[in-house]
Amino acid sequence: MGLFRTAGRAAVVGSVFGRVQRRQQQRFAAEDAAAAAAGTHFAPEPPTTPAPPPPVPAAVVDPTDHMLAQLKQLGELKGAGVLTDKEFQAQKARILGR
């Protein structure tokens, strides 16, 4: 019995859908004919301005690159005589997490 009930419902739904679609097509055709008879044609919509591009995600910073930059700067400070060997070793250990 369930199969017949489902088939019956599907037939009713298809019939209703077809009638609604035909009614809408007739209404739209009548509106178009009335607009053509009145001499008013629908103007095309003006082009819209393009949406701004999505925001660019922040660049992913590699922690290794950051550590290397810090070590390079630390080496330059030691080479310039700003840091002593002991200070250099302490800062290097801090950067490397030792």
Rank of each mutant, 00 (worst) to 15 (best):
V60L: 12
D85G: 09
H41Y: 10
A43S: 07
P50G: 06
H66V: 14
G2Y: 02
Q91F: 01
K72V: 04
G39N: 10
G79I: 00
L77F: 08
L77N: 06
K78Y: 15
Q21W: 09
D65A: 13
L96P: 01
A34M: 10
Q91P: 00
G81E: 06
D62S: 12
R22E: 09
P57E: 12
Q21K: 05
V60P: 01
A11R: 11
K86V: 15
K78G: 11
A10H: 04
P44T: 11
A11C: 04
A90P: 00
R19Q: 03
F17M: 06
G79Y: 01
G2M: 02
E31W: 12
L74N: 06
Q26A: 14
P55R: 13
T84S: 15
Q26E: 12
A59R: 13
R9P: 00
A34R: 14
G18M: 03
Q73P: 00
T48A: 14
R94E: 11
F4S: 04
G14L: 11
I95T: 04
Q70M: 15
A93W: 02
P53C: 02
L96N: 09
A51P: 05
P52E: 11
A11F: 05
R23K: 06
R9V: 02
A43Q: 08
V82A: 15
L96V: 12
P53I: 08
A29H: 08
F28Q: 14
R22N: 05
S15K: 00
S15I: 05
T6R: 11
A80R: 15
F17Y: 07
L77G: 01
H41K: 12
G39H: 09
P47H: 06
A7P: 00
Q21I: 04
P57H: 08
Q70F: 03
A33T: 04
E31K: 10
R22K: 12
L77Y: 05
R19A: 11
F4H: 07
G79T: 02
E87Q: 15
A37T: 08
V20D: 01
A51N: 05
G81R: 10
S15L: 14
K72G: 05
P54H: 07
T84L: 13
S15N: 03
A51H: 05
V82C: 02
A51R: 09
A34I: 07
L74H: 07
R22S: 09
D62W: 06
R22P: 01
T48E: 14
A69C: 00
P47W: 03
F88K: 05
R5A: 14
L3V: 06
E76F: 04
V56K: 13
F28D: 08
P55Q: 07
F28N: 11
E76K: 09
P54T: 07
F4N: 04
G14I: 04
L71R: 01
T49P: 10
A34D: 08
A93P: 04
L83W: 11
A59N: 04
D32N: 11
P55G: 11
G97W: 03
L71V: 12
P47R: 12
A36E: 13
T40V: 15
V20I: 13
R27T: 10
K72D: 12
E31I: 11
V56M: 12
L96I: 13
A36D: 06
V56T: 15
A38Q: 09
L74S: 08
V16Y: 01
